[in-house]
Structure formats: C-alpha cells, structure tokens
C-alpha cells in the first residue's frame, strides 16, 4: 500500500509569541521549529499501517528551506522518502492555496491512504486535510482517534460532542489524525543516521503542473490584515484563607461577579 503523510513545521508550543514589524506575522528569530504535534500522530499512524500491511511511506511538506528539518524528523521516525514543496510562489498560502498545492501532490503520487494531523499548531484551522480530500475526490475521516484498514476500505472512530461516531470510507481516502489515535515514537539513533541518506525530492509549482497564481498568497482566498497580542489579563484578588471561607468566596464570586449561579 502507498502511504502519503503531510506535515507542517510550526513554532514549538512553548514559544512566546511576539508580533513582527509588519504587524501581521510573528518574530521567527530564536523560535524553535518542530513538526506540528498532530502531524507526528499522522506519521506514527502511517508507520503502524506500513508495519502491518507493507508498502512505502512518502512524507511531504510545503514551506521554506527550514522545512527540511521536519522531513528529516519524519524520515528518522521511519518514513521512506520525502517531498519538499519549496518555491517562493508557495509563500503566504492560506488553507485553500495550501490544499491546492497538496492536492496536486496527491494526484502526482497516487497514494491509497493520505494522513494529515488535525491542525497545524499555530494557524489552528483544521481545514487542509478535508480540503485536499475534496479536491482529490477522496472520502475522509476527520478527528480520527481509532483506525482499522479492512481490504479496500477503512473504518475509523472520530470524536463528536458527547461521544464518538464510526465512519466507513472506501480507499483511496484521507485520515485526519486527532490526539489519542496513537502514541508517536521517538526517532532512534539508527533512524536518525539512516534518515540522512534517504531522498528528499524538491518540487516547484511548475513540477506540480500548477501556475503561480493558483498557489501561495496569489491563490489564497483569505489574508491576514493584522496580528495582535490578546489584551493582557489582570490578576484579581488572591486569598489565602480557611477552606470554608474560600468556598464562600468562590460561591459569592460565581453569584455576584460572574452571574453564573
């Protein structure tokens, strides 16, 4: 079976966000970039499937040169080869323009099963996996927390309000991984060494048969007008009192301030 995993390189979740001079992006100096945590779950799921069913895993990312580190991490975890969409024309893409480019990768590689993480930590959109599925004409399982491959179809559980639902989709299909699906492995030293020799193919807009106005900022349907830090919260009163007094204070607060009782 052919597997394709899309990953995104994002700022470490520990990052303290600072707004850059343009007022619509973040300061990247000193930021540690990692594979988006949900994408690690997507990689792990592809590895588990390959271990069970055989086949080959391609990992792909779109982004600047530093994105190669994310691909090396995925290769070190066990993916077989990598594709890097690196072209100035891809820059500034929103979800739609990103999906357009990634759907072209799907068409080119013709995978049976495509994995995405639930969201790129940072943009927090949960859009690209579903959009790629639609553009590629595939069914998908979103927010997937349990997956079974059964011949030419997959069955997966997804989280919904107050429970779970089981979705069945024929292959080829997209799976959007949610935390809980598996526990991603750490790359072993041997994997890290092997990853250095695994191939990374660079693809440009032209390689995907797309034109520059379909991708990147030009192909985007939305744009950031500005980015701001949220208003700072001020600490209210802090009490160190007997438990019974504290309980009464909390109830009074819920009643009088929050008007929640």
């Amino acid at each position: 079976m052919n597997f394709l995993v899309f990953v995104k390189q994002v700022p470490d979740t520990e990052t303290k966000i600072q707004i850059a001079g343009d007022g619509k992006s973040i300061v990247e100096d000193g930021v540690n970039f990692i594979v988006s945590p949900y994408d690690e779950i997507a990689i792990e799921e592809a590895l588990l499937r390959k271990e069970a069913l055989g086949g080959e895993i391609t990992v792909a990312t779109m982004g600047p040169n530093r994105g190669e580190a994310a691909l090396r991490t995925a290769l070190a975890m066990g993916c077989d080869k990598a594709v890097h969409l690196e072209d100035g024309a891809f820059e500034g893409a929103d979800s739609f323009a990103t999906a357009k480019a990634l759907a072209a990768v799907v068409k080119k590689l013709n995978p049976d099963l495509v994995f995405f993480g639930k969201q790129g930590v940072g943009t927090d959109n949960t859009q690209v996996g579903q959009m790629v599925a639609e553009m590629a004409g595939f069914g998908h399982i979103g927010m997937c927390v349990k997956l079974e491959v059964d011949g030419d179809k997959i069955k997966g559980e997804r989280e919904i309000e107050g429970g779970r639902e089981t979705v069945e989709v024929s292959l080829p299909a997209v799976v959007v991984a949610q935390k809980g699906l598996n526990e991603p492995r750490y790359p072993a030293l041997r994997g890290i060494m092997q990853a250095k020799r695994k191939p990374i193919e660079k693809l440009t807009v032209a390689d995907l048969g797309l034109s520059a106005d379909e991708v990147g900022a030009a192909g985007s349907r939305t744009e950031f007008a500005s980015l701001e830090l949220p208003p700072a919260r001020e600490a209210g009163k802090k009490l160190e009192v007997e438990p019974e007094v504290a309980a009464k204070e909390i109830v009074a607060f819920l009643k009088n301030e929050a008007k929640a009782l």
């Binding site: 927090d124 949960t126 579903q130 959009m131 639609e134 979103g142 927010m143 919904i160 309000e161």
Partner: peptide, 23 residues
C-alpha cells in the same frame, strides 16, 4: 465550529472556492 461544522466546512469551501476562517 462543532465537530460536524469543522469537518464539513472545508469541503464546502473547496467546492465553492471560498475563503474559510475557522473558529
């Protein structure tokens, strides 16, 4: 932005070529 809305809306956006801002 329910689990259903989050799951369906990107596919609609892809179909009608719309910009989509989540949550």
């Amino acid at each position: 932005a329910t689990t259903m809305g989050v799951d369906v809306s990107p596919r609609v956006a892809a179909r009608v070529e719309a910009g989509l801002v989540s949550d």
